[in-house]
């Protein structure tokens, strides 16, 4: 499912790196290298998502974002920035971006977040009470999880972790996305804390006889799917 994505980025190397990655994953990437053209294309082009550099010649990324949102254009936006501090991140998110990614980043991280913001906008507001993937079913009202006929007993945190994976089934979720989505922290835990949580969860839901549902994506994170 190819998507149309606008990239506003003045650094040629970074832009090529992203465009190449987008093409490899079947997306169509349009590129411009300054804020003014970026605003023109964004108001006009019917894009599924915009990847926006924070510091641009002509028009600052935050200003562009403000102009877009003021014009009621709600295309999902991921801000790219070399500013890594907690403060900068908060400023970016309050300015109306859907996500904030600090340079340098792995392309897998960008792709995972891109798919997340596009899906978030695409999905309606319908309240789901049952999440499922293959033979795995999660009943959110009764807080029950079953793999086939087998009931699985999960700790509250494991339940939330699995819920997050199920809500993003088929997508790659990175370790930082899990830390943000499940624990609501943005700091760098340094060690592989998330991996251990995942392997615990995997032991519980992927029994010996079952087809594994939680897959490790090398260099990126995890994906739940058949």
């Amino acid at each position: 499912m190819g998507r149309k994505i606008l990239l506003v980025e003045d650094d040629r190397t970074t832009a090529d790196f992203i465009l190449k990655g987008l093409a490899e994953h079947g997306h169509v990437g349009d590129h411009c290298d300054n804020g003014r053209d970026g605003l023109f294309m964004a108001t006009d082009g019917g894009y599924d998502a915009i990847i926006l550099d924070r510091m641009l010649p002509g028009m600052d990324g935050l200003a562009l974002l403000g102009a877009l949102r003021a014009a009621a254009i709600e295309t999902p936006v991921i801000l790219l920035s070399a500013l890594a501090s907690v403060e900068d991140r908060v400023t970016g998110l309050t300015a109306g971006s859907d996500d904030y990614l600090v340079k340098p980043f792995a392309f897998a991280e960008l792709l995972a977040r891109l798919e997340l913001v596009m899906r978030r906008r695409g999905s309606g507001t319908a309240v789901e009470t049952v999440l499922a993937c293959g033979t795995l079913r999660m009943d959110l009202l009764r807080r029950e999880v079953r793999r086939g006929a087998q009931a699985i007993d999960l700790q509250p945190r494991e339940f939330r972790l699995l819920e997050y994976l199920l809500r993003h089934a088929g997508q790659v979720v990175t370790r930082t996305m899990l830390l943000e989505g499940v624990w609501d922290y943005h700091f760098d835990p340094g060690t592989n804390v998330i991996d251990v949580h995942i392997s615990r969860l995997r032991r519980k839901i992927d029994g010996a006889d079952e087809r594994p549902l939680i897959h490790t994506v090398r260099g990126a994170g995890y994906r739940l799917g058949e």
């Binding site: 907690v86 403060e87 830390l179 624990w183 060690t191 804390v193 949580h197 615990r200």
Partner: peptide, 25 residues
Amino acid sequence: IGRDRMAPTDLGAMLADIGDLYEPL
């Protein structure tokens, strides 16, 4: 920088959260 971002937080709950994050490891 950042002092203005301080907000009242339950330290007990925060310790429990962080503990929960590291416990499996």
